[in-house]
Design a binder for these strands. Structure first.
Length: 499
RNA sequence: GUCCCCAUCGUCCAGAGGCCCAGGACGUGGCCCUUUCAAGGCCAAAACGCGGGUUCGAAUCCCGCUGGGGACGCCA
């Protein structure tokens, strides 16, 4: 079995295409097949090397490695259509010689007029066949005079073209609704429908798995396979991924490219796992599965027929799950850039990373994306009593019975210790409890507010030692300056006393 | 307009004639846990688009309608 993913390098890798790539990958890896990556860059105006590099990078980030492709080579290369142009000409000539194709001199302007006329008259827009039966002498003469024709495929009339779609079953079209497609452009470059057929045949692709938007191209391609004497591959057309409003997923709906999801702090395994679940189910009521297991269970026959809506919420849930599973060191490596971007981290050193690793568990599990982690840990790096008190949830704590007493007593209780660890913090809390008679929520809520400036957040047992550890580290300039718990308690008490 | 594809909770899926007064997951609501906010645990509400057939029996098969999507390029 040989499958392929054939993106055109005209932009970022869209999640919908990533899903197509994934399904190809799953099939190949579940059945010991070969996954080929081919770059469809015959549209030289829009294709760029930058997007090609970006797409390769995104696929690799996702872990969808290919067995053959433009950068890794293979026995069926080259893997860029722009490097295969020499291959197409002979097949085009063969088709012309066999009467399956012909030269067409119609100008783009005329074609456009024809199309508009058809639409206006309520007819299906379809090539009029103007040049279908041009006498050979005329063709020769016009070419000799410098006209540059395209080569069109002669679609046979009144035949039923049908194929077995592995996900949809029998699909058939009448050849009468198919206009003669352009095979070779006037400048000699092949057009899509021609290049895919030649390449898939030459690369010995056995299963073409692609988006449903290609289903109406399939009959033309089947006809081409027949005219060229090739055996058509198996086809499978995947339903499309839509936005919440049932329109094609686009920037209006938020992130659409794999690169954006990476930037926003999604883990590749989460995105992959989520994408696999649109239009397919691994069965057994299980959803959170590693890609190898997905591949083991994957079958085209089980792929759904209807379009799926991209659900950011579920992706977020899934990402949260995978963040919890990831080892802290890996997570720190992935998250460090968000801390740098935020300015919390000033230098990417081993000490800073160690600190990150120790502090990350407090945030993971309560956020959906890596990008949200610094904000969840904001209390470590930012402390401003006046600003905190301006917030309703923080100010509200002052109204809790005994809260002001606790806040006032805190600086004294903290004076004894230079750097708080879990034990000394508990001792300090116990001391405040003794002085004020407050306990439980009435004790810890005010303490939290005084030390973190926030009404919510991770367990104080972890948060408090982390603050002082961070303060120590920040003295070395690796982190943004962090106030110690003692400093915070004093400043907060002063700010509260003023009110 | 023409052709093609599709149709189960708000969303993603399970369901391949009786196991279904439809099951799971996300989300939503409630409760619990709790040193707060999250997280987590438990419970609940929530769907077979409509109309005809076929059959003893239909979410499952057939037809029509409606609705959604795709295609109709010297784009892929």
């Amino acid at each position: 079995m040989r499958v392929r993913f054939a993106p055109s390098p005209t932009g970022h890798l869209h999640v919908g295409n990533a899903r197509t790539a994934l399904f190809n990958w799953l099939l190949a890896h579940g059945k010991d097949g070969t996954f080929v990556l081919r770059i469809e860059d015959t549209d030289t105006e829009r294709s760029t090397r930058e997007s090609e590099a970006g797409i390769l990078e995104d696929l690799r980030w996702l872990g969808l490695e290919w067995d053959e492709g433009p950068d890794v080579g293979g026995l069926h290369g080259p893997y860029r259509q722009s490097e295969r142009v020499h291959l197409y000409a002979s097949y085009a000539n063969e088709l012309i010689a066999g009467g399956h194709a012909y030269y067409c001199f119609c100008s783009p302007g005329k074609l456009e007029d024809d199309r508009k006329g058809d639409l206006a008259a309520g007819r299906p827009p379809k090539y009029h066949g103007t040049c279908r039966d041009l006498p050979a002498e005329e063709t020769r003469a016009r070419m000799a005079s410098g006209e540059r024709p395209v080569i069109r495929f002669r679609v046979p009339e009144q035949v039923e073209v049908s194929f077995q779609d592995l996900v949809r079953g029998d699909v058939s079209f009448s050849s009468d609704v198919i206009g003669d497609p352009v095979l070779v452009r006037s400048d000699g470059r092949p057009a899509y429908n021609f290049a895919v057929v030649i390449d898939d045949a030459l690369m010995e692709i056995t299963h073409v798995i692609r988006g449903e938007d290609h289903i109406s191209n399939t009959p033309r391609q089947v006809l081409l396979y027949q005219a060229l004497g090739f055996t058509p591959p198996e086809f499978a057309h995947l339903s499309l991924v839509m936005g919440p409003d049932h329109t094609p997923l686009s920037k209006r709906h938020g992130a659409t490219s794999v690169a954006e999801f990476r930037e926003r702090g999604y883990l590749p395994e989460a995105l992959l796992n989520y994408l696999a679940l649109i239009g397919w189910s691994p069965g057994g009521g299980e959803e959170l599965l590693p890609i190898q297991e997905l591949a083991r269970r994957f079958a085209l026959e089980d792929v759904g027929h209807s379009a799926g809506i991209f659900d950011q919420e579920k992706l977020g849930w899934m990402n949260r799950h995978y963040m919890k599973e990831a080892p802290p060191a890996r997570l720190a490596g992935e998250a460090v850039r968000y801390f740098l971007k935020r300015g919390y981290l000033r230098r990417h050193t081993d000490e800073a990373m160690q600190f990150l690793i120790s502090v990350l568990p407090m945030a993971v599990g309560s956020v959906d994306r890596l990008e949200e982690i610094p904000d969840r840990l904001r209390f470590l790096f930012e402390f401003d009593p006046a600003r905190s008190l301006a917030r309703e949830d923080v100010a509200g704590v002052l109204h809790e019975p005994g809260a002001r007493e606790v806040i006032a007593a805190l600086p004294g209780a903290l004076a004894a210790t230079a750097r708080l660890d879990r034990e000394s913090f508990r001792a300090a809390a116990a001391s405040v409890r003794q002085q004020t008679g407050q306990k439980g929520r009435a004790l810890f809520h005010p303490i939290r507010v005084a030390l973190t400036g926030e009404a919510g957040g991770p367990e104080l047992d972890q948060a408090v030692p982390a603050i002082d550890r961070g303060a120590e580290l920040s003295a070395g300039g690796e982190l943004v300056p962090i106030a110690t718990c003692r400093e915070r308690a004093a400043a907060f008490a002063a700010a509260v006393a003023d009110r």
